[in-house]
Simulated assay, not measured.
Amino acid sequence: MNRWPLARYRFRVRMDTDLTLPAFSGSLLRSVFGSALKHQVCPGHGDQPCPETCAYRVLFEPAIQPGERFPDAPPPLIFQFTEAHQVMADDYLEFTQTLLGPALDYLTLITEIWRQAFVRGIGRNRITGRLASVALEQPEGFSVNKEWLPVYSSTEGRFLAHQPGLELPFPEPSGDLTLHLQTPLRLMESGQLLGQGRLTTEAFAKALLRRIQQANHLYLHQAVPDWWQFRTWFEPVVLSGKLRKIGLNRYSSRQQQAMRLTGVLGDIHLTGVCPELQPWLMLGQYLHLGKNSAFGFGQYRLTSGCNGLHNG
């Protein structure tokens, strides 16, 4: 497969005081970033709407073109959560962000926005911190332990030359894979959440292909399979797992209201995954699945094997 124009970067921030984070903090980080970005780049427009070339429009609220194949246009940024619920003063907050296509050209600006956001403070209590470093993920197949290439250090104040992009590893023979859901997965059908006993192989396959085709159509522009090919690869796959429903609240700054969202957490096991399908499942780790993926929902980690799972 070709080198895909996407990359995942890790940001490390040294906190000045203790920071408490909500569960699945990708939505909070997205709100912090959007506010800081608008504050930085939009005042020059005055009272006029943002032009399509405005960095805020490009990175955060892309325009939906009439007649587009997909009715929504998620931004070319995907916010990942941090596992930490509390970061003590002088410790480091770590979070990652996946940049797609045109967003790769904005890494310098994105880094500066994060720096400014933490200088001003985040959350209701305006907790401050200092951006320490940025690193590029170096994928290693199904390995849980990822390598990170340093690309920016606050002590040097400059970016190191590097080549962003994702080269998916050569697939292994047919086997079993497990998707460990790290944030709630929101797959819907006829207004109903697909959870334990409702999530089928076909529904999963359609959701994965739709996410890949959407990101590809908008930002990546690579050769991707159609539904006929995807369905052929998924025919021998058996889906099982153990999922639990979870509800959480988030506040929409754009809509000025609280929102109640539901999703599922747990593990999804796929038996009999052919080599041709493996790279697309690995790509899904970066794109996420389901609704609200731009907020960090639908994030999963892929491993080989299926120990401890039950049919669902």
Rank of each mutant, 00 (worst) to 15 (best):
F11C: 05
D90N: 14
L283S: 02
K38F: 15
A207V: 05
E68R: 12
A215R: 04
Q214D: 09
L93E: 08
P275Y: 12
G191N: 07
L181Q: 02
N216T: 07
V273G: 02
H217W: 15
P51S: 09
P76A: 03
D91M: 11
Q65R: 14
S252A: 09
Q222F: 08
C50P: 07
N216I: 05
F170G: 12
G296W: 00
R115L: 11
G298I: 07
S252L: 09
L6F: 06
G298F: 02
A215W: 03
A203Y: 08
Q86G: 13
E202R: 01
S25G: 12
G26F: 00
L6S: 06
W114M: 02
T271K: 08
L277E: 05
S133F: 06
G191H: 03
G26W: 00
V41Y: 05
Q255W: 06
N216G: 11
R3A: 13
R186V: 14
G129C: 13
P171W: 01
L220Y: 06
C54E: 12
G101L: 06
Y152L: 11
F60D: 07
P173K: 01
E189G: 07
Q278T: 10
L302S: 08
D267T: 01
R12D: 15
L6N: 01
E140L: 13
T53N: 10
F79S: 03
L28M: 05
P275E: 14
T155C: 09
R231G: 10
P76S: 06
R186M: 15
D16L: 14
F24L: 11
G26C: 08
G123L: 05
L248F: 13
R120M: 14
P51K: 01
W227S: 04
H310S: 14
H162E: 11
L265S: 04
L59T: 02
V41F: 02
D267M: 09
R250K: 11
T200H: 07
P139M: 09
L193I: 05
T17R: 14
T98R: 00
P71F: 05
P236I: 09
R69H: 15
P66H: 00
S153G: 15
S174I: 04
C306K: 05
F118T: 02
R250G: 10
P75L: 14
G175C: 08
D226A: 10
N2S: 14
H85S: 13
A84M: 11
P51A: 10
F118H: 02
C42L: 04
E167D: 14
P71L: 13
A223V: 11
G284R: 04
F79C: 01
L131R: 03
L287F: 01
P169K: 06
A63V: 15
T96R: 01
A117M: 01
E276H: 01
T108L: 13
D226I: 03
L243Q: 03
P184D: 08
G266V: 04
R231N: 13
A73T: 11
M88C: 13
L309E: 08
T155H: 06
L187C: 00
